[in-house]
């Protein structure tokens, strides 16, 4: 890339959730729903002496993508690790439910989810988990009528119940700075021991769950540079592709077949060699 091109790049990873939602919507179309001045914050955090945030860490914005009505839902990773609480989860599920209603009624809608989270907020535990089940239900209901696009940019990545959500979207876009999984490395080390996974071994962690690895084996669809314009283009292109023939989470025979072809030890490069031949 030329120096001027590099200079004109805007890192998407460095943007906050509001800026990310704005960057993915067409210029000038951003309109936030339940913004900070609506003050619907977590009813549970202050009771545990934790300072809440006015938007509970989720930005929901209407606008257009490629001229078509859209909703961008972006998680703010800097607040409580992007964790899903009752309010932040209800904002995500509720927006997806409304998008499904529109899509079912024949109104075009382009829903995009920007993940940045470790999963359920343990300070809201069962209500975060309930909200996560609502999010899963809403994605499955919505994608019957309109493709749902997911973006994982990094640096936190997408884990826990939201990793399951990422497994449900119609098309998943990642950067090299993204990570995707169910259990974060610290949680695995705490539960299974350092011999199972050394969470401080960063190269190992990235070789298992990093964006490039996920893309190479087909657990992510597009690998895009950390550039706001490039990501907006990729999101628009994903919607223009329309529905996939089959969602990855429906392809039972294919993925079970792959699980019969595993390397001797669970290593990223070895898996790539085995799985790349039939990249989905």
């Amino acid at each position: 890339m030329s120096v001027p091109a590099l200079m004109s790049r805007t890192s998407f990873v460095e943007l906050n959730a509001r800026e990310r939602a704005r960057a993915l919507l067409d210029d000038g179309s951003f309109r936030e729903l339940l913004g900070p001045f609506d003050r619907i914050e977590s009813p549970w955090l202050a009771r545990q002496n934790i300072v809440p945030q006015a938007d509970d860490g989720v930005v929901v914005a209407r606008g257009t993508i490629g001229g078509v009505a859209a909703v961008a839902i972006a998680i703010e990773g800097a607040f409580q690790g992007g964790s899903t609480g009752e309010v932040s989860g209800a904002k995500i599920a509720g927006a997806l439910e409304l998008a499904a209603k529109d899509a079912k009624a024949g109104k075009p809608i382009r829903p995009v989810l920007v993940f940045e989270t470790g999963g359920v907020r343990l300070q809201e535990a069962n209500l975060g988990l309930a909200a996560m089940a609502d999010v899963h239900a809403a994605v499955v209901a919505l994608r019957r009528h309109a493709p749902v696009v997911g973006v994982i940019a990094g640096m936190i990545g997408c884990f826990g119940g939201m990793g399951i959500t990422a497994g449900l979207v119609s098309r998943l876009i990642v950067t090299r700075q993204a990570r995707l999984g169910l259990n974060g490395p610290e949680v695995i080390e705490q539960n299974a021991g350092v011999e199972e996974l050394d969470s401080r071994d960063r190269p190992l962690i990235w070789s298992l769950t990093g964006g490039e690895q996920r893309h190479a084996v087909g657990l992510a669809d597009d690998l895009v540079a950390d550039d706001a314009d490039a990501l907006a283009d990729a999101v628009r292109a994903a919607f223009e592709r329309g529905q996939p023939a089959e969602h990855q989470s429906e392809r039972i025979a294919f993925w079970r077949g792959r699980l019969e072809r595993l390397p001797a030890t669970p290593e990223g490069p070895a898996l790539r060699k085995l799985w790349m031949g039939d990249r989905p």
Binding site: F37, I50, V51, P52, Q53, A78, F79
Partner: peptide
């Protein structure tokens, strides 16, 4: 944003100047 070492500010027009602070 309410992230370590940072803060969130909501500022609105008002007849009087009142600041409500919640701090960790």
């Amino acid at each position: 944003v309410v992230a370590s070492g940072d803060l969130e500010v909501l500022m609105e027009p008002s007849n009087e100047t009142v600041v409500s602070v919640r701090t960790s």
